[in-house]
Design a binder for these strands. Structure first.
Length: 159
DNA sequence: GCCAACGTTGGC
DNA sequence: GCCAACGTTGGC
């Protein structure tokens, strides 16, 4: 039996790579590089599966919020930026034999009827326990429950 | 293993 | 630009 589909929220700064950028990308797909947090990395390595749903969230934006629907498009594999001394995400302590950091491919699958600002997420009682809304949360990748996924699709004008 | 210092995130 | 909250680092 296939593993149950899971859901995630992934943060990206739209000035760096917005949902529209992803939509316009080749195959609407990009490699999610630059994750340098062990919790987020472990989610990708251990828990993400191809086909999992992704809320594409714009952080450090005005306003911040959910900007699109995407999906996990590959298993986790080594993030090449960790090996590149010229890259901002270079990690001198990582090695090709035992890469410290991984990423996954992410594919845009659906545009929203309406952008869902953070303010609207906070205003929805059914989302009160959502991981990304908890105090002080800075994780770039957080789990989303199936119920939360459904509520947010509703807020976005999708069925 | 503790914990202070430091760097980063991200909303405002 | 500010700053609270957090994760990581490194001295001990």
């Amino acid at each position: 039996m296939a593993t149950k589909r899971k859901y995630w929220l992934m943060k990206c700064e739209p000035d760096v790579f917005s949902f529209d950028d992803l939509w316009k990308a080749k195959k609407r797909t990009t490699f999610w590089d630059g994750v340098r947090n062990y919790t987020a990395r472990n989610f990708m390595r251990a828990d993400m599966r191809v086909g999992d749903g992704v809320l594409y969230y714009h952080s450090n934006a005005a306003p911040p919020g959910v900007a699109g629907i995407a999906e996990v498009a590959s298993e986790a594999y080594a993030d090449p930026t960790q090996f590149d001394p010229e890259d901002d995400h270079f990690d001198p302590k990582s090695s090709r034999e035992d890469p410290r950091w991984s990423g996954v491919d992410v594919r845009a699958v659906e545009k929203l009827g309406a952008f869902v600002p953070l303010e609207a997420l906070r205003a929805e009682p059914r989302l009160a326990r959502m991981a990304v809304l908890q105090r002080g949360n800075r994780l770039s990748i957080t789990p989303v429950t199936a119920a939360e996924w459904k509520v947010i699709r509703g807020l976005a004008g999708l069925k």
